[in-house]
Structure formats: structure tokens, C-alpha cells
């Protein structure tokens, strides 16, 4: 088992394997997005209080979930890298950050476009919105740190440390609507209670969330492959691959 894990943790093997997986993840993401949008726009009914404006939920909530989840995965790979000095885990962390930042931006953008007609404001400094904005700056700060440190190994460690310190922000985002008075409403979907959404609306949202998940895997694998080529450029297998 241990031998097997090391086998897949070798960048060369991982490069080959991920190359085969990317199309599967990518195309399933496309198909699920089409299905999710069909449910969201043609099957889900109008909402009783928000009318059609609520349809922003089908991208807002998946994007917000991904923004937090990707950060946790980055922190996980950073911790693994620091603990076991595995090159590939740091690369995974680096490959995820831009997509995490993208989803954070989308969550904030769609939130503003949703907040204006429903609440009456594009932006308010409540705990939920502020902590999500902090998440965006964390992503940007981590990526800038990586870009600023030329030595890959030192950059990996510094970035992983900053990622781990910033991870405290994720539970703050998630529980902010419970811990403090916020303008943002509580969670519609959580592990502790039945979802407070009509079933078809919920299904549309979950399909979009799975699509976002598959998309993230596909682009992160794509990015990590480029990183592997750069870092392993002096190995025989990359040299052979380039010459083909």
C-alpha cells in the first residue's frame, strides 16, 4: 500500500494519470452545468418573496461553497507538504489557489448583484461579507507571496504557512451568520437541519455545486501538470516528453 501511494505521488506517474483524467472531469462538469442551468431556469419555480432574482443562487451558493472548500483543500495539501516534504502536495496547493480566488470573486460579485435589488445595497460591512472579502485578499496575498519568492522550496513553505494561518477565516465565514447579527440570512442548506428550499430549487443548486467541484478538479489538475513540467524540467522523463 505504502509503495503504491509513493508510486502515485511521483510527479511522473501523476502527470500521466492526471492527463487521462482531465477530459472526464472537464466534460462531466460541462454536462452537469447544462443540466443544472436547465433545472435552474426552466424547472425551478419563481420564489415567493424574491421573484426571479433568486435564480442567482444557482451560481452564488456553489461559488461561495467552493471558495471556502478550495481554501481548506489548499491548507490540507500545505500541511501534508510541510509534514512529509512531498513535492507534489505543494504543487497541488499552488494549482488550486487561482481557482479558489476566482470562486471567491464570483461569490462576492453575484452577492453584490443579488444584494442590490433584494436588500437595497450592493455591499454592507456585515460579518459574512467582510470575512468573505478577507478570503479574497488571503488568496491574492498567498499567490503574491509565491510569485515573490524565486526559490520554489522556500516559496512552498512560506505559502503553506500563510495558508494555514489564514484557514481560521473559513469557519469564521461559515458561522458568521450564527455568531453575529448579520444582514446576510442564515444557511438554507446545512448538515444540522432539513433544507429550507423547495426540492427542485435545491436539486438545481446541488447539481451546479457538483459541476463546480468537477470543474475545479479539472482545472487544478491541468495547472498542476504545467507546474510539474516546469519543476521537473531537468529529469529524463520531461526531457523525453518535450522532444516528442
Amino acid at each position: 500500500m505504502a509503495i503504491n501511494l509513493y508510486y502515485y505521488a511521483s510527479p511522473a506517474t501523476f502527470y500521466q494519470l492526471s492527463g487521462k483524467l482531465i477530459p472526464w472531469f472537464g466534460w462531466s462538469a460541462v454536462i452537469l452545468t447544462v443540466i443544472g442551468l436547465y433545472i435552474g431556469f426552466f424547472m425551478a419555480p419563481t420564489d415567493f418573496q424574491q421573484g426571479e432574482a433568486y435564480r442567482i443562487i444557482f451560481i452564488h451558493v456553489p461559488a461561495a461553497w467552493m471558495s471556502m472548500f478550495i481554501y481548506l483543500v489548499m491548507a490540507f495539501w500545505g500541511a501534508i507538504g510541510l509534514a512529509f516534504k512531498t513535492r507534489l502536495s505543494f504543487m497541488m496547493s499552488r494549482a488550486l489557489a487561482p481557482t479558489g480566488a476566482l470562486f471567491t470573486f464570483i461569490a462576492l460579485w453575484t452577492g453584490a448583484l443579488w444584494g442590490k435589488p433584494m436588500w437595497g445595497a450592493w455591499w454592507v460591512w456585515d460579518a459574512r461579507l467582510t470575512s468573505e472579502l478577507i478570503l479574497l485578499f488571503l488568496y491574492i496575498g498567498i499567490m503574491a507571496l509565491w510569485a515573490a519568492i524565486d526559490d520554489p522550496q522556500r516559496g512552498d513553505r512560506a505559502g503553506a504557512l500563510l495558508t494555514l494561518v489564514g484557514a481560521i477565516n473559513v469557519p469564521i465565514i461559515y458561522f458568521s451568520v450564527k455568531w453575529w447579527n448579520t444582514l446576510h440570512q442564515g444557511a438554507s442548506v446545512s448538515l444540522t437541519k432539513a433544507p429550507s428550499m423547495a426540492k427542485i430549487m435545491l436539486i438545481g443548486m446541488l447539481v451546479m455545486a457538483i459541476a463546480a467541484w468537477l470543474y475545479t478538479i479539472a482545472v487544478a489538475l491541468y495547472r498542476v501538470r504545467t507546474l510539474i513540467l516546469e519543476r521537473e524540467r531537468n529529469t529524463d522523463w520531461v526531457k523525453a516528453l518535450v522532444e516528442k
Binding site: 419563481t46 426571479e52 432574482a53 452564488h60 461559488a63 464570483i106 453575484t110 448583484l113 443579488w114
Partner: peptide
């Protein structure tokens, strides 16, 4: 028109 919220709804989807 999305019930009058077209700008907000499509503004979200187009940017995404």
C-alpha cells in the same frame, strides 16, 4: 427580463 431583475441575474451569469 427575469421579472424585472434581468440585469442582476444575467450580470451574474455573464461574468461567471
Amino acid at each position: 427580463s427575469m421579472g424585472g431583475y434581468g440585469l442582476y441575474v444575467w450580470g451574474s451569469y455573464v461574468v461567471m
